[in-house]
Amino acid sequence: MGDRAKIEQIVGKAEPRIDGRRERGRSNHKRIVAAMMALIENGDLTPSAARVAEEAGVGLRTVFRHFDDMDALYREISKIVGERIWPVISEAYRGHDWRIKLRDLTRRRARVFEMMLPFRLAANVKRYQSPYLMAQYGQVVALEREFVLRLLPAAVRGDRYFVEALCSALSFQSWRAIRQDQALSVEDASAVVERTVEALVASLA
């Protein structure tokens, strides 16, 4: 499916018009966000405002009329990506033993990281130039760590090196390296992370 087709799929059919100008504004807003997301998903991690305008089929002025700067556009995308992944990360864990829950978290994290991969790569490229993206990066890393620590018994959390090794194995940076640098498939990358986590848990004994 081409970029334009993806945009049309995200935008969907227009609602019946009540106020033509308002409806055009809403449609353009959706098209701009969809264009940015489509470009990133297809490998353009730093699309310019001009490129976004071209893909969305709108003028450059229209892009900046809807988004004062590119950070505003990234905020909108972050919100959409967050809505996509929330059902996965918020689902109750299976079982009662922390080891079973950790295994569940490991598998979910692979799914979430793959869904987020192009958008987090794009954010990583821009975060050193964007206070918003840098702040968001710190918040996401802290949240990822917190989700892991919540599952661990107090005695296990007291093992500093285990905790740090586990958080490293379950980090996005680790997933990125396995998927990109080592060029593993999603299935193989998931198996590597699961094997690593299992070995760390086994080492506690």
Rank of each mutant, 00 (worst) to 15 (best):
I85H: 02
R145G: 15
R51E: 09
R24P: 05
S48R: 14
V192L: 14
T46W: 10
D3R: 13
I40N: 03
A50M: 09
I85C: 00
S27F: 10
L166V: 09
E164S: 08
T62P: 08
A154N: 03
R31I: 06
S48D: 08
A50L: 13
Y137Q: 05
V197T: 00
L133M: 09
V163K: 04
L143I: 01
L152N: 11
D97M: 02
A154C: 07
R75N: 01
V88Y: 14
G43F: 14
R157S: 03
R26Q: 14
R176W: 12
T62K: 07
E83Y: 05
I89Y: 10
T106Y: 12
A35F: 08
M1I: 06
D104Y: 09
M1H: 03
L105Q: 09
K126A: 15
V192H: 11
M115E: 14
L143P: 00
A49P: 01
S27N: 09
D69V: 09
S168P: 01
L200K: 08
E146T: 11
R108P: 06
E76T: 12
E41P: 00
F64H: 15
F113E: 10
G12A: 06
M36D: 00
R4S: 07
A189P: 00
D3N: 13
L60H: 13
T46I: 07
E76K: 13
I89W: 11
R160V: 15
W98K: 06
A122S: 14
V141M: 09
T46A: 13
Y93W: 12
L39G: 00
A169H: 06
G43I: 06
I10N: 02
K30H: 10
V11H: 03
D69Y: 02
S130E: 09
F67M: 06
R31H: 12
K13A: 13
L102H: 05
L151K: 04
S174N: 14
V140M: 10
I85T: 12
P87Q: 12
V193S: 08
I7N: 05
V81I: 15
L166T: 05
